[in-house]
Structures are given as C-alpha cells and as structure tokens.
Amino acid sequence: MLGRLLRARYATLFLLAAIMIAVPYLAPSAFYLRVAAVVWVFALAALGLTILMGYAGQVSLGHAGFLGLGGYAVAIGPARFGLDPVLCLFLGAALAGALAFLVGRPILRLKGYYLAIATLGFGVILALVFHSESDWTGGPDGMAVARVTVFGTRLAGAATWYWVTAGALLIGAFLALNIEASPTGRALKALHDSEVAAAGAGIDVGRKKLAAFVIGAIYAAFAGGLLAAMNGLITPDAASFMHSIELVAMVIIGGLGSVLGAVVGAAFLVVLPQALTVLQEYEQAVLGLLIMVFMIFLPAGIVPTLRKWLLERLS
C-alpha cells in the first residue's frame, strides 16, 4: 500500500498538501507561517532548478538572477508604469522566460563546469544591473514594493501570504510532476544520462535543454515576484551569487531530480538558520558542518535516500 503510494505520480502532491494544511494548526505563532511561506517561495524557485539540473542535468549558478528579475518586475511595474502587481508577476515570469530563451541558446552549448561559469557570469551581470541602475531599481538598498490587492482585498499578514505561496508551490509542483512524466521530461532525463546517446536516439538535445532552462527561469522569476510582494521590498542581494549557490544547494541537499526534494532542501536551508540562532556565534560553523554531514552520508540527497530506504524496507 505504502509502496504503491511511494511510486504514485501525485503522491508528492498529496503529501505536500497535507503538510500545508497541517502547518497552520501546529504553528504556535504567525512567525512559523512566515518561515513556512519563505520555504514555499524558495521551494518554488528550487523546483525550476530541479527541472533544469535534476531532469536535464544542466547546472545553473546564476539562477538567482531570474529570481531577482521577477522581484524587480513586481517592484518596478507598479511604481514606474502603474501596472497591476499581479499582472507584473506574470510579466516578470514572461520576461525571465524570454531572457532565458535569448541567452540560453549560446550558453547551453557549454557543458559541465563551463556551463556553470557562464550561468554564473550571467547572474553576476544581472545582479550588477539591479545594484547599479538606481534610477530604476533603487540601488543597493533595494526598492519598496507596493502592497498587492487582489479583488479588493489587500494581501497582508503572514497567514495570507502563507496560503498564497502554498497555492503557488502546489501548482508549481503539479506542473513539474507533469513535465517529469511527459515526453519532454523523459527526453530530458535521457540527455541527463548521456547527451550523445540522447542525440543518437533522435532527441533534439539543444531544444530540450533550452526548454528546461526557460521553464526553470520562469519558476525562479515567479518565486522572486512572490518574495518581493510578500516582503514589500526587493534588494539586489536577492539576485546575488550567494543566493544562486543557495538555490543549487537546496536542490542537491533535498535530492537532485525530486520534486519533494526541492521542498525539503528549501526547508533545510530556510528553517535551519532559524533553529540555529540559539547557537549564536556558532551558527555559521554548525550550518556548514551540517551541510557537509548530510552530503557525506546522504550523497543522493535527503528525499531519494529516504525513499529508497522505505522501498527497501517494504519489499
């Protein structure tokens, strides 16, 4: 029974939904909802990377650049052009997708670490633009985001944003699971294993990689837009190299290629610093140590290892 559940396509979705419903009942204060909302947002961004890295096997060390793009779209659109923030959320995602399409073509010809440095450079350039074009972006201290109103209700408070972000993540996870099971998803997994073999099998490798890159960018931009709207502020730091690394870390720690893994990885890196505050000055050292320990003992990531263990126990 459990074994079948573990293998079922939408099991992840039901589990996620169950957790999302349970958290508000268990949370002692609104602070926990805020942390959970941040987890959902970063999980959404990490999901994009899961499609790119986990399915297609392509690394991006500049993904936070798209996150920032989505955030600034929600900040700049309403402030400079008087656009509706919700519309800007989608515009930002579209913009990120278009940009990914343009730069993806030349960049994705590169392989392995060369792709990593190219995406890194792309992310650094984007972050630098957000940082420097103060007239548009407010410069290094960031830019305020107008509060979002949907159907006449102002979105404010941790509880409201908890449900908005949870809903967004659920939709994102649903789409990711469908992509995984689609012909495109299978093609991506094939080229993950071997590009040469995939090409030999008649897969248009370049196009599939580009598709994964564009989808990943759209996920990240959407997450960035939500983050900016939720915080009421976006800073260029959101697009920084360190955040790109953080997103990659989420995907790898949670489990490369697993939708639930992206969520677990995001939870790991968002909740852990909150839990470690009791350690005060030792916080950073312990965080680093825990990342190492987890990767040494669970090199395939938390979720795949756990899943494998459960399946072995059941059979």
Binding site: P28, S29, F31, R34, L227, N231, T235, D237, T277, E283
Partner: peptide, 19 residues
C-alpha cells in the same frame, strides 16, 4: 544576525514580534 540579507531580516523581525 541577519547576515545582511533583507529577506532574513524580515523573517527575524516577524519572529521578534510574533514569537
């Protein structure tokens, strides 16, 4: 300690007030 990260700072601010 927010590490200079605005998003973290905001979470900690919520924590100070709510928790």
């Amino acid at each position: 300690d927010d590490g200079g990260d605005a998003n973290k700072a905001r979470t900690f601010a919520t924590r100070l007030i709510e928790d």
